[in-house]
Each structure stands twice: as C-alpha cells, then as structure tokens.
Design a protein around this nucleic acid. Sequence first.
DNA 1: ATCCCTATTGGCCTCACGGGCGATATCTTG
DNA 2: CAAGATATCGCCCGTGAGGCCAATAGGGAT
Lengths: 204, 204
Amino acid sequence: MRLIIADDHSVVRDGLRWMLSDREEIDIVAEAEDGAQLLELLATQSADIVLLDVRMPGVSGLDALPEILNRYPETKVVILSMHDEPAYVRRALSLGAAGYVLKSSGRSELIRALEEVARGGTYVQGEVAAQLAEPGAVRVGELSPRELDVLVLMARGMENKQVARALGISEATVKTHIKSIFERLGVRSRAEAVAVGLRTGLIE
Amino acid sequence: MRLIIADDHSVVRDGLRWMLSDREEIDIVAEAEDGAQLLELLATQSADIVLLDVRMPGVSGLDALPEILNRYPETKVVILSMHDEPAYVRRALSLGAAGYVLKSSGRSELIRALEEVARGGTYVQGEVAAQLAEPGAVRVGELSPRELDVLVLMARGMENKQVARALGISEATVKTHIKSIFERLGVRSRAEAVAVGLRTGLIE
DNA sequence: ATCCCTATTGGCCTCACGGGCGATATCTTG
DNA sequence: CAAGATATCGCCCGTGAGGCCAATAGGGAT
C-alpha cells in the first residue's frame, strides 16, 4: 500500500510515520506540507492512499480533494482531521473522501481505516459517525451554495448592500438568504451566524 | 530533563515521542490528553518542563498554564501551538509560558527550545517572534478584559440590550465598548468583529 | 402530468445598530 | 502630578438589519 502523507505540521507527519513504521504492507512514499505540494508530488509519484489533513496553508485539504480524485481516480483519500464537526465531515465525504479519522485516534484505529479503504471500502471513525447521525442536532452544514456565498461575505464584514452588489442580486434577496441561514443554523443575528459558521468549519 | 507532554491528539504525542526519542538527556515521564489530566498527573509526578498544547477539550492549555505555574513554580512550560496569531502568543507569554513553538516546527527547533528553556531562558520561535514584532499590523489581541467579555457575548448572538443585562451595565456602555472593539480590530460591524475574534483566537 | 419542496428572487416596515460627540471616576505609569 | 488607559453613562440620528409576506423557476416523487 503506497501512502502519501499531507499535513503542514511536521510533528504530525513524524507521528504518523512512527505509528505506521512497523507495518510491512504500508509504504510511505512521500510527504507534502500543503495541497499545492501534494498535487505536484502526485504528478510524478502515484499512490494508493493519501492521508490528507483538512487545514493547510494555501491549498487546503478540502481544496485539493476534488482535484486529486479528478486527476487520479484510482487514488483513495483518507481525511485526517482535528474536527468532528458534522459540517466538515459532510463536506469531506460529499467531496469523495473514502475515510475520515481524527488526529486524536490511536494507531489501531488509523490502521483499521487505511486497511478498510485499501480494500475499496469507506471508513468513518465511530465518534464522528455518531455525531453525523445525531438526529436532534441542528443540521448545520447544509446551506445552499448561494447561502454559503452570502455567509462568506458576511464574515468579511460586508453589509447587505455590498453583498448584493458582489453577487449581482438585490438587497432584498440577500436578506431572504440571510433569514434562511439564520433558520438553519438556529441563530438570530449575523454575528452569531458568523460565529457558528467559523466554529463548525462551514466557512474559512 | 523530565518532560511531560500534554496534547489531545495521539498522533501528535507519538510524533513528539519519536522526535525526542534519541535524545538521552530528555526523559518523557508522562503524557496527558487534556488540562485536567495534566494537573492530576503533576500532583504525583513532578517535571522540569511541560510541553503544552493550547487547544484541548475541557481544560485547555491556556487554562491550565497559570494553574501549573502557581502550584509548581519550578516547572517550566513550553507552548506547542498550531497558531502563530499574535493574540495567542501574547496571551501565552503574559500567562508565564517560557517557550512558544509551532507544531510545524522540526525536530531541531523543538530541541533547541527545550534546551534553552531548561537552561532557564525563554524561547519564541522565529516566525512567531517576527509576527509579534510586526509594527504596522493592527495590534489585534489587545482588548481590555471588559471588551473581551462583550465580544464573547456578541459572538453568542446577543444584542446590545441583552449584553448590557448580562454584564449588569447600561446599554450605552456596551455601545462604547463595542465601538472601541471595532477600532482596535479595525472592523466596522459586529459580524466582522466576531469573525476576526475567532480567526485570531481572541475568543472561543 | 401534477404536486411538492427547495432555491432564488423580491418589497415593506420597524427597531436595533453604529457614528458622532461629550462626560465622569478610577487606576496605572512615567 | 500629569498623562493615558479603563470603565461607566448619556443623547441624537441616519441607515442597515431582521421580521413578515409573497412570487417564480426547477427538480423529484407518485
């Protein structure tokens, strides 16, 4: 199993190397510090699985993910994240990730995930899957594309009029989108919406 | 040098162990997964240096830091963070951390920091120190305690009247604080203030 | 082909927000 | 002691924000 590790923290890369070092069948063929480097690497060095961190400077893991699967459909991607926020997980899985494990997971869990994915399956860590299934929880992370656009611009401090101009729609429409964002996130003000958006990884 | 590692991500703990494993003089005597566990550990197991992650569930690193220094003045603390945001760094140093290194730093940098701190000095990683000295940059992260209170409540979606009641002050005063928050963060709306606050680690 | 749901678009109305400007008491710091 | 930062409160005022209601287009379900 040829593996490539992509994470901007060298401490994490070393940890992964260490965790997987005694597994004969796992061969770490390369490491990347960000998404751009990873894509360059993949141009010359094929891999079976990419262990991909979500947060990286420049081209993030979530940015690189669709690009990888598009260019190299044979390559599986396992997301390695710190966050168990449903929004992150949903986005990653909808973008085509084959696995999702947390950085707090131990050696055995990680290896189980890699093996399952190598076999062609998918693996989502227990705690994460539980969060995902949570029925009572507000289904944060399910904003429409347009609503997401609006939320991003709101987080930049734009007022409705500016958002309207930026998106080429009327201010009234922006307000409707915002109202619907409020409903879905269960908030009552744009400040809170931005807070929830950032905390759950919906934006930025 | 007796070292304790506190980080909620086992991948990171393994990475650190690995990085430091061939240094004879460094002895990793224990590991903790959060601040509470760390404080328990210290009750029975003394250490020279604690390598402390800022973000941990429950009792965070920044919560535990003053407590550690208070109870065990001999123990030095080196912060191990993902963030080079000046706000984080300032807070950590003002709370009495003896060192500050990033998770993206390599083996040599980490060891240099530990040695310097063990000698009784302080060590702040180059890139971090540079950010800190940045004169032109708005000095984000220097809100007064009261302003911070207000910002936190704003991020919860409270409107001025509610914040006023929560803090037991008048609405006019809340507005004054907010205005001053805007000035310092260089923003023009509460939504943007919350965004900046979260992104720079001032709140949450 | 019809019905339903969602996404997207829009107008009207009221109140909270934010700008401007000023004021007082405390506490640190030079 | 003077100077500056912190925390407190006030009034005015214009506009942006959020609540209420409505319409159109497209994708699925039966």
